[in-house]
Simulated assay, not measured.
Amino acid sequence: MSEAVKTAVIYYSSTGNIHRLAEAAIAGAEKAGSQTRLRKIRELAPEAAISSNDAWKAHVEATTDVATAELEDLEWADVVIFGAPTRYGNVPSQFQQFIDTTGPLWSQGKLADKVYTAFTSSSTAHGGQESTLLSLYTTLFHWGGIVVPPGYTDPIQFQLGNPYGASHVATPGNFPGETELEAARYQARRAVEIAGSLKSGQAA
């Protein structure tokens, strides 16, 4: 019997929308039989900026028990699911800083041949969501990763309308609803199932 697929959901969230999608992705991966790790990317914003936004401050305080992402989490995983809000059509600086520390793993080939997928959130519909995911996927191609977007491979994707990854419009007080959460769960299940097929083929 082949070893269970290992999935790391690594995300950055300021006010909690991406965090909720990350939890849904964990649930989807576990439903597919995967071992999982939920990891948040270290907050780099100054305390004054965080304190000036009640939702941001509340989310930081509410997630102190979530472990911080480390390079070892990337090395451990067969599937890496990234979550990041959209900032001007790209990932935020906190997320990019984490990506910029991966050189030692990349140079040893330890990021290649893993399954990757990603999700995002923005304050307006299509407000850079697609370009954020595509920009991130460019990095994963550089690593030699196997990028697995959800595409339109499940009915939930036709409701969501974004084939690149689960996404959410983060207007004030509008947290991800069931459509967005189910899309994140489905995206994770799909990534785990494809990784499982790859592991089975390698073991044969």
Rank of each mutant, 00 (worst) to 15 (best):
residue 16 G to M: 09
residue 125 A to M: 12
residue 1 M to S: 10
residue 147 V to E: 04
residue 2 S to T: 13
residue 56 W to C: 02
residue 12 Y to W: 14
residue 92 P to Q: 00
residue 166 A to M: 09
residue 93 S to M: 15
residue 39 R to Y: 02
residue 80 V to S: 01
residue 4 A to H: 08
residue 63 T to Q: 09
residue 87 R to Y: 12
residue 165 G to W: 03
residue 122 S to Q: 08
residue 202 Q to D: 11
residue 43 E to N: 09
residue 5 V to W: 00
residue 22 A to V: 11
residue 129 Q to P: 01
residue 56 W to T: 08
residue 201 G to M: 15
residue 106 W to N: 13
residue 172 P to K: 15
residue 34 S to H: 07
residue 129 Q to H: 10
residue 133 L to T: 03
residue 79 V to L: 02
residue 40 K to N: 13
residue 166 A to P: 05
residue 171 T to G: 06
residue 191 A to K: 01
residue 157 Q to H: 07
residue 25 A to I: 08
residue 92 P to R: 00
residue 142 H to F: 13
residue 23 E to S: 10
residue 48 A to Y: 14
residue 158 F to R: 13
residue 20 R to K: 12
residue 74 L to R: 04
residue 88 Y to M: 13
residue 182 E to A: 15
residue 176 P to V: 07
residue 18 I to K: 04
residue 18 I to S: 04
residue 5 V to A: 00
residue 186 Y to W: 12
residue 167 S to D: 11
residue 49 A to H: 13
residue 89 G to Y: 03
residue 89 G to A: 06
residue 152 Y to F: 13
residue 34 S to R: 06
residue 135 S to A: 14
residue 82 F to M: 14
residue 39 R to A: 08
residue 137 Y to K: 02
residue 47 E to K: 12
residue 52 S to V: 07
residue 129 Q to F: 01
residue 110 K to V: 01
residue 86 T to Y: 04
residue 115 V to H: 00
residue 153 T to I: 05
residue 107 S to E: 12
residue 196 G to A: 05
residue 28 G to A: 05
residue 75 E to G: 02
residue 144 G to D: 02
residue 182 E to R: 11
residue 170 A to W: 03
residue 16 G to H: 07
residue 150 P to Q: 03
residue 23 E to N: 14
residue 81 I to H: 02
residue 19 H to W: 10
residue 32 A to Y: 06
residue 1 M to L: 11
residue 157 Q to G: 02
residue 41 I to L: 04
residue 193 E to G: 01
residue 46 P to D: 07
residue 135 S to C: 14
residue 150 P to E: 01
residue 38 L to F: 01
residue 194 I to P: 05
residue 3 E to I: 13
residue 57 K to V: 04
residue 119 F to C: 09
residue 21 L to V: 03
residue 151 G to H: 03
residue 127 G to V: 04
residue 37 R to D: 03
residue 40 K to T: 12
residue 85 P to I: 04
residue 89 G to C: 07
residue 203 A to R: 14
residue 186 Y to N: 11
residue 51 S to C: 09
residue 14 S to L: 13
residue 90 N to F: 12
residue 82 F to Y: 09
residue 32 A to I: 06
residue 151 G to K: 02
residue 21 L to W: 01
residue 95 F to D: 06
residue 16 G to W: 06
residue 199 K to P: 01
residue 192 V to F: 00
residue 204 A to R: 14
residue 166 A to R: 08
residue 117 T to P: 11
residue 21 L to D: 01
residue 61 E to A: 15
residue 46 P to L: 03
residue 105 L to Q: 06
residue 185 R to N: 06
residue 146 I to F: 09
residue 127 G to Y: 04
residue 5 V to Q: 00
residue 65 D to R: 09
residue 108 Q to K: 13
residue 116 Y to H: 07
residue 107 S to H: 15
residue 178 E to D: 15
residue 188 A to V: 10
residue 88 Y to W: 15
residue 24 A to I: 06
residue 125 A to N: 15
residue 68 T to M: 15
residue 58 A to W: 09
residue 6 K to P: 03
residue 79 V to N: 00
residue 190 R to A: 13
residue 145 G to M: 04
residue 168 H to N: 06
residue 69 A to I: 05
residue 74 L to W: 12
residue 139 T to L: 11
residue 147 V to W: 04
residue 59 H to S: 05
